[in-house]
Amino acid sequence: MDSTGEVSRVGNPMRTRQPRRLGKATKAGRATKADRAGQPGQGRVALLFLLPALISLALLRLIPAGVALVDSFFTESLLRGGRVFVGLGNYSDLLGNADFRKSVGVTLLFTVIVNPLQIAVAFLLAVLYTQRATGSKFWRSLVILPIAVPPAVSAVIWSVIYRPDGLGNSFLDLLKIPAQPFLTSTEQALPSIIVLLSWIGVGYWMLFLIAGINDIPDDIHEAASLDGVSPWRRLWSITLPLVRRPLAFVLVADTVSNLLVFAPVQILTKGGPNGTTNLMMYDVYNRAYAIGDLHTAQAEVILLVAVTLIIVALQFRLLRGDDR
C-alpha cells in the first residue's frame, strides 16, 4: 500500500513528460504521410510494439477501475449470500454516514493545510540551496535524505518521537516547554501527521523546484543585479514567475500524493482520536479490510477519485488562467 503511494509520486513526472514526446512523433508522422501510404504494414508494427504497454494498461489499470465502478453498485449479504444490485445505494449510504462525512471534512482540511505548507517550504529551501554558498550541496542532500526511508518506516520512527515519554517531549523538556500529547489529542494529531509527511515530502518536491531554478538563464539574474534589483524583488519578480511550470507540476502532484496518504495514519493513529485523522484513503482501507464491506469501500474509492479530480481540475483552471 505504501509503495503504491510512492509509485504514484515517482510516476507522475514521467507521465507528464510523455505527452510532449508523443506530440512530436505525431507531427513528424503527419509530415511523412505520403511515404507511409506506401508502407501499409507500419501502423500494424507500431501497434505491435505498443501492445505490451496497452495490455498492461488495460489489465492493471482500466479493468480494475471498471471492476471497482461496477462493484460499487452492488452489495453482498454475508448471511443471505449473493450479490444484489443496489444502484446508487452504497453511495447514498456513504453520504448518510456521519463517519464518512467527517472523513471528507478531515481530508479537505488536511489538503488545504498540507499542500501550501509543503510547497512554500520546498520553494524557500530550493531558493536557499541554489545560492552559491559553501556546503549548500551538503545541506541539500540532508533535506532530501528522508525520501530514502519508506513511508512506513518513517511512521514507525515518528511513533517513537511522538510517544508521551518519547523523544519529542524530551526535546521540548530541554526547551522548558511542557509535555505535549501529540497523537493522543484531537487538536494535535492531524498537525503531527502533517509535520511527519512534510519531513518526508519537502525534500522531494524541492528537487523539482531546484531543477526549475537552475533552468533560469544566469543572464536574467545578472541583468537584474546590474539594474540594482534587490534580492527580494528578484525572488518575487524573476524566480517565482520563471519556475511557475515546475511549481504547477509540484502543486498537482503533491496534492494527489497527499490525498492518497495511508501508511502514517494506519501506523500512528488508526484514524483517531475521534476520527480527526481519518483521511479518506485510510477510511477506504478500513471499510474494505477491517469492516469487510468491499462494495461500499469501492463506492468510496470512486468518491475519493471524484474529490481528487475536482481539486486537480480546479488547480488547472487557476493555473491556465494565469497563462494567458
Binding site: M1, T4, G5, V7, S8, G11, N12, R15, T16, Q18, P19, G23, L60, R61, L62, I63, P64, A65, V67, A68, F249, V252, A253, V256, L260, M281, V284, Y285, A288, L294, A297, Q298, V301, L304, V305, T308, L309, V312, A313, F316
Partner: peptide
C-alpha cells in the same frame, strides 16, 4: 493534455488498491 494524463493516473492508483 497534462491534466488528462495526470487525472488518469490519479484515478487508477486508489482503484488498484482494491483490485
Amino acid at each position: 493534455p497534462r491534466a488528462g494524463r495526470l487525472i488518469a493516473g490519479v484515478f487508477v492508483v486508489p482503484v488498484l488498491l482494491l483490485a
